[in-house]
Design a protein around this nucleic acid. Structure first.
Ligand SMILES: [Mn+2]
Ligand SMILES: [Mn+2]
Ligand SMILES: [Mn+2]
Ligand SMILES: [Mn+2]
Lengths: 149, 149
DNA sequence: TCGCAAATGAAGCCTAGGCTACACTTTTGT
DNA sequence: ACAAAAGTGTAGCCTAGGCTTCATTTGCGA
């Protein structure tokens, strides 16, 4: 292991940002599906492939492939022709993803974004909100509803 | 052409949001490359594949393939072994993308996000900011620096 | 109970967007 | 002027994530 290469002044800084955005984009599927499966298990005790597909707006083979990836990555379990459930790791991801999702929506609403746009945009933006940004969002929301109790 | 199907109550609303997020994600490459090429043409009079690749953090064949897609979609032009330039449509996209990028960064900074995180997160978030949200962001920024002149 | 509809699985196709390896042009330095 | 270096192009491989089509299993209602 080497130290993170110092990058010739800031030549690579921009490249680093794009790479980080690409990495975040690659997490989108896992994050959205874990959150969705967690929702469904809460609501019905299990998550069925067909319902996942319907809510995600994809065909069932697409949802099945996504679930296969979740299982491969240790986030979910399932047996043939049965429901899908999250592992400990999957539940943890779902919890943090849901918390972040809510905070992003709340920030957008606080900034005056119409509710429908806030929900829609948050679904994509959330995956690019870093820990640092999330912390700033939380602080902003605390300030906000402290000044207007 | 039919009217947008009313969706049984709100069953499909969630699916619509995910589909919109997927569409936005698919625009990411075009938006980032047009902005980048526009930057480079401003700075050096042309955009070379190698420099695009370097700044985007990808290999040169990847950048070349991206430019091929830009050309296919009528956003850029180039001749073999020569620089890349934007069409009218490409320049228009670059201008709006750059404006939105700046606004997103400014909003994040106004909310107290550290500068480095703001730059990085904006690079991904920007592609999911709708017109409605952008308008709210602009209004927020105007209020902001009106109250602190 | 048993037959049929709904759900699930499996196979295979497609595009986007990464990569490496190698060929060819252009530019540059002696 | 020309050889080496740098830049560019091309081919081909890979994975992710959509899709359709068809086979199989489940679960229900008659
Ligand atoms: Mn999402
Ligand atoms: Mn979400
Ligand atoms: Mn971007
Ligand atoms: Mn940008």
């Amino acid at each position: 292991m080497q130290q993170p290469p110092p990058q010739d002044s800031d030549s690579g800084a921009q490249a680093d940002r794009f790479n980080q955005a690409r990495t975040a984009k690659a997490m989108t599927l896992l994050e959205d599906y874990t959150e969705m499966i967690d929702d469904l298990v809460q609501a019905h005790g299990e998550a069925r492939i067909t319902e996942i597909a319907h809510l995600m707006g994809v065909t069932h083979p697409t949802a099945a492939k996504a679930v296969a990836r979740l299982k491969r990555e240790g986030l979910a379990v399932s047996r043939p022709y049965r429901g899908v459930f999250l592992t400990e790791a999957g539940s943890a991801m779902a919890a943090s993803v849901r918390a972040r999702h809510r905070i992003v929506v709340d920030v957008l609403l606080a900034l005056g974004v119409p509710a429908e746009a806030a929900e829609t945009d948050a679904e994509g933006m959330e995956h690019h909100v870093s820990e640092a940004t999330l912390a700033a969002f939380e602080a902003f929301l605390r300030r906000k509803d402290q000044s207007a109790p």
